[in-house]
Computed example of a mutant assay.
Amino acid sequence: MTVPRPTNPRSPLTRSSLTRDLSALGVREGDTLLLHSSLRSLGWVCGGAPTVVHALTDVLGARGTVTVPTQTMDNSDPATWTHPPVPEDWWPVIRAESPPFDARVTPTLAMGRIAETLRTWPGAVRSTHPQTSFAALGPQAGRLMSEHAQDCRLGERSPLAGLERAGARVLLLGTGYASCTAFHLAEYRLPRPAQEEFSCAVMTTEGRRAWVTHDDVALDASDFEHLGTAFEGTGAVTTGRVGQATARLFSLPRAVEFATGWLPRHR
Rank of each mutant, 00 (worst) to 15 (best):
Ala259Ser: 05
Thr204Phe: 10
Glu197Leu: 13
Asp31Ala: 11
Gly261Cys: 05
Ala96Phe: 08
Leu13Thr: 02
Ser158Glu: 04
Asp77Glu: 10
Ala245Leu: 10
Gly48Glu: 05
Thr120Ser: 13
Pro78His: 08
Glu225Ala: 14
Pro139Ile: 06
Pro6Asp: 01
Pro85His: 12
Thr65Gly: 11
Gly240Ala: 09
Leu39Gly: 00
Ala259Gly: 07
Cys46Val: 14
Phe134Met: 11
Tyr177Trp: 15
Ala55Ser: 14
Ala182Glu: 07
Met111His: 03
Leu13Trp: 02
Leu219Phe: 01
Pro99Cys: 04
Ala166Pro: 10
Gln131Phe: 09
Val105Glu: 03
Cys152Ala: 06
Val237Gln: 00
Glu88Gly: 13
Leu185Thr: 03
Ala161Cys: 14
Phe250Met: 05
Ala178Arg: 15
Ala230His: 05
Ser37Asp: 01
Pro12Glu: 09
Val237Leu: 06
Glu197Asp: 14
Leu227His: 03
Gly64Gln: 10
Leu160Tyr: 04
Tyr188Gly: 11
His226Asn: 12
Phe183Tyr: 09
Asp215Gln: 15
Ser222Ala: 14
Ala178Asp: 09
Gly162Arg: 15
Ala124Phe: 08
Arg5Lys: 13
Gly64Cys: 13
Pro50Lys: 12
Pro159Trp: 06
Gly235Val: 13
Gly30Pro: 05
Gly26Ser: 11
His184Tyr: 11
Leu56Gln: 01
Val27Trp: 01
Phe258Gln: 02
Tyr177Met: 11
Thr234Leu: 15
Gly243Val: 11
Val125Asp: 00
Cys46Pro: 00
Ser199Cys: 14
Thr120His: 13
Pro107Asp: 09
Leu163Arg: 06
Pro264Leu: 09
Gly207Leu: 08
Gly64Asn: 11
Thr204Leu: 09
Arg189Cys: 07
Pro122Asn: 04
Ser41Phe: 12
Ala186Glu: 02
Ser222Asp: 13
Ala236Ile: 06
Val212Gly: 00
Ser41Leu: 12
Cys200Arg: 00
Val212Ser: 02
Leu160Lys: 04
Leu109Tyr: 10
His184Val: 06
Glu257Ala: 15
Glu147Pro: 00
His129Ile: 07
His226Thr: 15
Ala141Cys: 07
Pro130Trp: 07
Ser222Trp: 05
Thr80Cys: 04
Val45Pro: 00
Thr19Cys: 11
Val105Met: 03
Pro122Tyr: 05
Thr72Leu: 12
Ser23Leu: 14
Ala135Asn: 02
Gly174Arg: 07
His266Leu: 08
Ala194Leu: 11
Trp262Pro: 01
Val105Tyr: 07
Ala49Phe: 10
Thr205Gly: 11
Pro159His: 07
Ser127Gly: 07
Arg209Pro: 06
Leu144Tyr: 09
Ala166Glu: 13
His54Ala: 14
Asp31Leu: 10
Ser179Trp: 03
Leu263Arg: 05
Thr175Phe: 05
Val45Gly: 00
Ala259Lys: 01
Ser146Trp: 04
His266Cys: 09
Ala218Leu: 15
Gln131Trp: 06
Thr234Ser: 14
